[in-house]
Simulated scan of single mutants.
Amino acid sequence: MESSGNGTEAPAYGQCHPTFNDDFKCDIIFWIRCAVAILSMLACTFVVFIILIFKKYKFLHQRLILYLSIAAFFQSLGYAVSDYRIAFQGRNGGEGFCIFVGIWTLFFDWFSFLWVCCITFNIFWNAVFGKRTEKFEKFYFVVCIGVPAILCCLPFIENSYGPSGLWCWIKSSSFDERSDTVKVFIPGVILQFVLFYGPLWIISVILLIVLISIACLTRHRRNKYQGVCNHQVDAQKKLWEEDIRPLVLFPWIYLVILLFPLMNRLRLAFGFFDPDSPANFWFWFSHAFMLTLHGTLYALVFACDKTTRSRITYHQIKAALLQRTMRRRKIKEYPLVSSTEVGGSLSSIVVSDDLTEDGINGTSGSYKLYLGSH
């Protein structure tokens, strides 16, 4: 037991009170969250690596996957470093890093979600209008960077960054030093739903309607044009295979993942909370586990693509790496020291002193002699 501020005895709660009264539960959730976040970071690194070495970034739909993977990498990095001990250092005045992690998390949560929105818009434009969307790429960047930057500034109005359950974000509780108690921070709870969960789920419902409409439209077109051969139908089939099909699962993954943190935050907002109940632990566990799993799921969907899967072999990756690291072939022409006439023309030596770009099995230092006129 510890003495509280008014001289009465208070229970000796752990560092993660009031979320749990037992720090061991916090440790389990933190290490699960950290491990899954690191796994997602590795998975995102794999996606970026494959896209770069095989030059898949030449196509817009692959660049969108690249941007989403980079966003998910930094999102997972914020999850990995946000320890609940750091989150509760604010009670002792050491909340600077917690505020930084809160800003980082809010920015990259929105950054990642907006790339999902751009992917959905890209699918919609391709499927409904049958047109490519390269002209929108700059607009995608403006939205995905500008909107999170603005939203991250708003919590400073109420000084709302800080502990939010087991990690740093928009704080949901505040510590009253006079009564030595933790109270619900109403402005922070409101901001969580106004700046994140509210618009996120309104947009998510719109995305869900759009995705279902695209699926219905695509099925209708397939049934309508089944067995029909003309240029327009062939072009639509090619557009589906190249630009739509590789992207269609990414928005669905994000929507399913969002269900778990939303249920947990709604439960807390309506007061259904008992630190010692098993349900409280499993709500937080599912929240932490699913929210950090997105990068891994993106990589699995990316690797399941037929074209990508056929290239993810040891020999293909090795050949691509060698091709990217070797210098391009250079043909150099040198005049002979002595002016020897060959058929009335001055002979010359053409030396190839570099390996060709695709000459993976070539031998360094090989030379070829050609005779030709100047």
Rank of each mutant, 00 (worst) to 15 (best):
W125R: 15
F175E: 01
W31G: 00
F100D: 01
I65M: 14
E242K: 11
E241K: 14
L321S: 06
F193D: 01
A303V: 02
Y367C: 06
L268A: 12
Q89R: 12
I65P: 06
I312V: 15
R132A: 06
V143W: 00
W31P: 00
S76L: 02
L355N: 11
S4V: 06
L239D: 05
W125I: 14
I32L: 11
F196K: 13
V189R: 14
F250M: 13
S286C: 12
G162W: 04
S40C: 00
C152M: 10
F129W: 13
N361D: 12
T308V: 15
F46N: 05
C118E: 06
V116L: 03
W31V: 04
S69C: 05
F289D: 00
C26F: 09
R327N: 10
G227T: 05
W104H: 15
L321P: 00
T296C: 10
L336Y: 11
H294W: 14
R33Q: 14
P335C: 07
R324F: 03
E341N: 13
A303N: 03
S69D: 02
R309W: 14
V351D: 10
D22H: 12
R222S: 05
L106V: 09
W110D: 05
N92L: 10
F100V: 14
T120H: 07
I202H: 02
E341A: 09
F107D: 01
T133V: 07
T363F: 13
L262A: 11
I28C: 08
V182N: 05
A37T: 00
N126L: 09
S3C: 09
G94Q: 14
F107M: 04
I257D: 01
I103V: 15
K306M: 05
A72H: 09
V128L: 13
F30T: 01
A35H: 01
G14Y: 09
Y367G: 01
V143N: 07
G198H: 10
C117F: 08
T307L: 09
I257N: 03
S204C: 08
E341I: 13
F107G: 02
L208P: 07
L68V: 06
K332N: 12
F49V: 04
S345V: 06
R132E: 13
S160L: 02
F59W: 02
M41S: 02
K58V: 02
F196R: 14
W125V: 15
R324H: 03
D354W: 13
T292W: 06
D23H: 13
E241F: 08
D22A: 11
S373Y: 03
R33Y: 11
L106E: 04
P251N: 07
E2F: 08
P155E: 02
R245T: 06
Y298L: 15
G78C: 08
C153E: 01
F59E: 12
V47W: 00
L293Y: 07
N230G: 00
T19C: 05
P275C: 07
Y57H: 15
R221A: 09
N280L: 00
F260P: 05
R324V: 04
Y13T: 11
H374R: 13
V184H: 07
F24L: 12
H294I: 15
K138R: 15
Y161I: 10
Q323K: 10
V36D: 01
